[in-house]
Design a protein around this nucleic acid. Sequence first.
DNA 1: GTCTATAAGGTGATAGAC
DNA 2: GTCTATCACCTTATAGAC
Lengths: 200, 200
Amino acid sequence: MTTEELILQAATRVCQEKGFAAARMDEIAKEAGINRALLHYYFRSKEKMFDIIFAVKFKAFFSGVAGIFQAEISIFDKVTALVDLELSVISQNPELPLFIIGELNRNPERLIKMMQKNNVNMAAILVQLEKQLHEEYLAGTIKKFTAYAFVLNIMGLCLYPFIAKNLIIHIVGVDKEKFLEFVSGRKQEITDFIIAGMKA
Amino acid sequence: MTTEELILQAATRVCQEKGFAAARMDEIAKEAGINRALLHYYFRSKEKMFDIIFAVKFKAFFSGVAGIFQAEISIFDKVTALVDLELSVISQNPELPLFIIGELNRNPERLIKMMQKNNVNMAAILVQLEKQLHEEYLAGTIKKFTAYAFVLNIMGLCLYPFIAKNLIIHIVGVDKEKFLEFVSGRKQEITDFIIAGMKA
DNA sequence: GTCTATAAGGTGATAGAC
DNA sequence: GTCTATCACCTTATAGAC
């Protein structure tokens, strides 16, 4: 592993845990086992380093999701595919949702740029989704749902357990690994729950 | 309004928006229209001031919820009551969930102390809930659910839209007030969705 | 109670030796 | 490339006048 990769890995850990404002260049350097000045040699500034970290995490968070939304499959198949993808991706990276959401306030423009760069047009996706939901409603397969409700329900059920991970761990005093194992293993249960809730 | 209340109000706004690490005493002072030294006169330190803010917000977040969990009503009535309470409380304070969750990492002990101080024993609540869920499952009214799943599903569906508020606003370019109005108005829809998903 | 001035320490970033 | 030393700035907190 190159020094640059080593630093980036350490920086990712620290930034994800603490957030940009609370993350310290000194802590990142120590975590990487190198000197603080070397961080600036490779990345010039904290902000630029954070940009790179955010871009990687953003891709992990969104890649694949847009494709499923736009696929020509039934709405129930979309539910299954979305739950499967989200839980798979986030299980590998439990801090991801809170990191993205938490850092958003500080620099919303960054997110918008990322969306454009990755060719994700969420407004267009929602319009298309709205059409499909309406058609399936008319066909009698599902109850009436807006595209917003559809997305929020799926994301809420999949992501919230990871977002509230530390809250739950500390409140009920459960083991972190056990908890993550539990929420990651709920693919079928969540999928069934959503489909049962949507069926006409 | 006393100066102390004025400061606390300004401090709450800034801390909730920026988080502890990014919040600046100077910004709070300006927001309150007073001098920075006066903050320390009233609250001694940033940390102590934050303690007070957090305690108030914590109570708003948890008060009532424990009571519903422990009430002697059917599981469907609990769903209805919980969704109603959560959406009512959070609608009045959309930043609340992310604030509590986001600040947790920095000081988990604070949360544990709050739970004890407010006499909320979540572990005991979950045991009791588990019992009820099992009984209603045996009675044939609902599918099999763990207490964890029950709580996570409800909280995810109610809270996630507020947690991801800024993500959604920026991604789809929707108006903030419109969005909050929409998610706050989903009480019936979410309740129906959950009950449909749980029914045997 | 409220202010100005300032101390004390932390933090990102750079200079320059090796 | 990697280090030590250091600058320049920012932020919390206090001292002391009014």
